[in-house]
């Protein structure tokens, strides 16, 4: 839990435990890239949602590397287990026909234009993140689950209550919206 922006690369052999961890991290990043690419460019919505699940699995692995196994578990439970399945149900209930279900038949310049805009945002944000001289503050907490639980029920209790209200309203709103029009 040391507060340094980038640790110096230790002089390690390729077959040490640290190198193995690094290889696992590279596999995780590969999962993110491949999943996000499939989710964005695939022609079939079912393949899109599968790619999204793969991408979220990679993001969960990255959270593990960011020293937060609890968030990695929550990512798997909520995103991979709930949100992806929910969207898969939406695809099953509301996709009209076979074929190009992702619907890329619109304006012909939308694809290249979108790619240009996305690449521009990616380049700009990356350069901004890498070039900025980030300031490291001294640590005041540990960031384990006990500290998170205490913060959720003391200094962040207002947001905690608000998000429970948001979820309640979302459930009721989803029920009302999906039920309307059915006799």
């Amino acid at each position: 839990m040391q507060a340094t922006i980038c640790q110096a690369a230790a002089n390690q052999s390729l077959f040490s435990a640290e190198s193995f961890v690094g290889i696992i991290f590279l596999i995780t990043v590969g999962l993110i890239i491949a999943g996000a690419w499939i989710a964005v460019v695939s022609r079939r919505l079912v393949r899109c949602i599968s790619g999204l699940a793969v991408c979220f699995t990679g993001v969960a692995g990255t959270y593990y590397f960011l020293l937060s196994p609890f968030l990695a578990m929550m990512q798997m439970l909520i995103y991979v287990g709930a949100v992806s399945i929910l969207i898969a149900f939406g695809i099953m209930l509301a996709t009209p026909e076979e074929g190009d279900t992702a619907g890329n038949k619109g304006s012909p310049i939308a694809g290249p234009l979108g790619f240009a805009v996305g690449a521009l945002m990616f380049a700009a944000l990356s350069v901004l993140g890498v070039k900025t001289d980030w300031q490291v503050f001294p640590r005041t907490g540990t960031g384990d689950m006990e500290a998170m639980g205490k913060a959720l029920l003391t200094s962040h209790s207002m947001v905690f209550e608000l998000i429970s209200l948001v979820l309640l309203i979302a459930i009721i709103g989803a029920l009302v919206l999906a039920r309307r029009g059915r006799n």
């Binding site: 980038c6 640790q7 390690q12 390729l14 991290f25 964005v40 992702a102 038949k105 939308a110 805009v117």
Partner: peptide, 30 residues
């Protein structure tokens, strides 16, 4: 192999996810 200890790696990954999302938002039709 030491990328996982650098802040910049994660910032670039986040920017990449954002860029993919913007690409999908602009190009998708459903």
């Amino acid at each position: 192999l030491n990328l996982y200890n650098c802040l910049n790696t994660y910032l670039v990954i986040g920017a990449m996810l954002f860029g993919f999302g913007i690409y999908g938002l602009v190009s998708r039709r459903t």
